[in-house]
Nucleic acid binder design. Structure first.
Lengths: 352, 352
DNA sequence: CTTAGCACTCAGGGCTTTCGAGTGCTAAGC
DNA sequence: GCTTAGCACTCGAAAGCCCTGAGTGCTAAG
């Protein structure tokens, strides 16, 4: 998109003005800001309108950006928002709380973003590398109770308590361990089939019916780790934005988001960028055509990756949201590792 | 509250009419239903109004129940809603899906209720009996990695993977197990103090700094099990109800509910009843003064108890909500035990 | 005690008017 | 040739107004 510098400046000013006020921007308002007469600006605006970057809600109103206008803004004009000292300090302070499990990391990060941006925020996690069981251990609690512990290739540990119908003997437990570790480890879920399980039953001489339970546990564990996890926070924020004052619109969006499946299917940033921005109609889902999505990816190591995303009106403060998202996505790894977070404090004080 | 039979009937009819339509009820509408002239009904309504059971939104409108009116209705007039065959069948069908963890039981039950009632629904779980650690096990994964497994008195098992700075030797692991099981089991969290931990460090001759980590893990585990868990589903339903068309009201309520702490502090049914109903101003929280809460309690055994609650407008179908809640609360135990749920199919087909 | 009749009230919907922000166009100025 | 002042025009939003009709309380007759 080839625009004169002045057109660029006008477009940028309009987008930013509109992001803040949610009111169509008229030529007079800009003339003060840019040192040009309103007439001149009207001429420029007319051209931007015919180029499809601006539109008028009705004849006698100011201009608002079209989705294409936002796209040009985001691609070419947006100053990357520099987090102010107070912003980074707030983030760091909140992050410092040491977090323990993945669940908590996700929900805390998501809450943090949604508090900072006033938009609903989702966090997704998935373990990308195919997980296998690296090792089994069996611990007898008492004569009729056994704990099966599975250690996974991604360094997480799962366990299950099993109740037996008759007393079990210690030798058998040893044998269970030996056989399972020899034959049932490092397998993808698909190879844990009935034949294999039957052969293990024979090898151990299982008379408790426990082998089948353990195999079931193993399969369950693997299937569970593949599942993506979604967390959603701050949906009620959308009610603050005038574009969702119509309760049906708000509800449509909230319903869409409250189904984890939908959230999981949202797109992710390309390999070479860390934030992706989808503006209004660029979204594939019908329910999101009137909204925008900003999404960042993070990597916690150990094969755990995920997305952190924000959903809001098309009139969204893309610069600020993108800055916050990528800063926090970046910090999540430190958090997950339980380190005291110590992200660099960025930027100087922003324009305000 | 002493009312003539006719007054009772009129009050009941008004409440039920208003629950369905959300429109003030006039004397004419009732005269058809009750076989009395509108003038007579007006006289009765005037009296009910002066008794504080009904009110008029404005002079020329019909009557709506006051919170006190609802209270009388709930206490004395409400037919307990009999779930229709199709209703119970739907519930049973949905419940039959076998659920695995507490988390899932809660969120499924909560979703089920919110789908059935179209109100936001919360589910709380808490383990009431103080939990202790019954037993520790330590499994070495490799030279520098150790899994600590804690088995709790409520038959759940927790574990944590620990990384060591230097290779560990098998004898030391044995010793760890012996010492921890002898000195650190069956203790409340409060007794796991620094003195005790120091003495264990001495007894094991810990040179890895691992004792402190294990103790930390144990304390964390215990503190976590005491924590109440809250799940919230279907908040967007409130937008469907005309009393929350004003976005600020909707947001006030949603915000209040989205803070787990608030939800946890909601009241619970008295010992002798299984459902509690709080009508509008009867709620202590300012944010709930315009809403009603219906809450049922359940008991999953193993010391896990909880609440299942619905929040909605004061004009709520108390009978139906209470019936659904208590039916499902009753069924949760079966679900949690992984049984095929087989609740009795209740009632005959309802009035409609 | 019930009911028909009647005058009265008042919120809500529809219609009109007014107001003003903003526009495009034209003509004058630098 | 670009910029700007001026002007007529457009049209949504807000305000005012009227009308309608549902619902009321009261009274008097059955």
């Amino acid at each position: 998109m080839n625009l004169s510098d002045r057109k660029k400046q006008i477009l940028r000013t309009i987008v930013e003005y509109y992001i803040n006020t949610a009111e169509p921007v008229g030529s007079k308002a800009l003339s003060g800001e840019l040192g040009l007469s309103s007439a001149t600006i009207r001429n420029e605006m007319a051209e931007l309108t015919s180029m499809g970057l601006l539109e008028q809600p009705h004849t006698s109103a100011g201009r608002i950006p079209t989705p294409l206008g936002y796209r040009v803004y985001v691609n070419e004009l947006m100053n990357s928002h520099r987090l102010s000292i107070s912003e980074t300090e707030e983030i760091n302070k909140t992050m410092k709380v040491k977090m323990e499990q993945l669940d908590k990391v996700l929900s805390d990060a998501s809450r943090l973003v949604s508090d900072l941006t006033s938009y609903p925020t989702y966090a997704l996690a998935e373990t990308s590398a195919p997980v296998t069981i690296r090792r089994f251990d069996f611990i007898s609690v008492d004569q009729r109770t056994l704990i099966a512990v599975a250690m996974l290739s991604n360094n997480t540990v799962k366990n299950k308590l099993m109740n037996l119908t008759r007393p079990i003997d210690e030798n058998f437990i040893q044998k269970l361990g030996a056989v399972f570790n020899a034959n049932f480890t490092n397998l993808p879920e698909t190879e844990m089939d009935a034949t294999l399980i039957a052969s293990i039953e024979r090898a151990t001489g299982d008379i408790y019916g426990i082998v089948a339970s353990i195999a079931g546990f193993a399969i369950h564990v693997l299937s569970e780790t593949v599942t993506k996890k979604a967390i959603l926070t701050g949906t009620s924020h959308i009610l603050e934005h005038p574009e969702y004052r119509d309760w049906q619109k708000a509800q449509k969006l909230m319903n869409y988001l409250s189904d984890d499946g939908n959230v999981i299917r949202l797109p992710e940033p390309d390999d070479n960028s860390d934030v992706k921005i989808l503006i209004g109609p660029e979204n594939v889902a019908e329910e999101l055509k009137d909204s925008s999505v900003v999404v960042a990816k993070y990597d916690l190591g150990d094969g755990v990756k995920g997305l952190l995303g924000v959903v809001g009106p098309i009139r969204m403060d893309y610069a600020k949201v993108a800055a916050n998202l990528s800063y926090i996505a970046q910090g999540m790894k430190a958090i997950a590792e339980g380190k005291e977070t110590h992200l660099p404090v960025l930027g100087e004080k922003n324009e305000e």
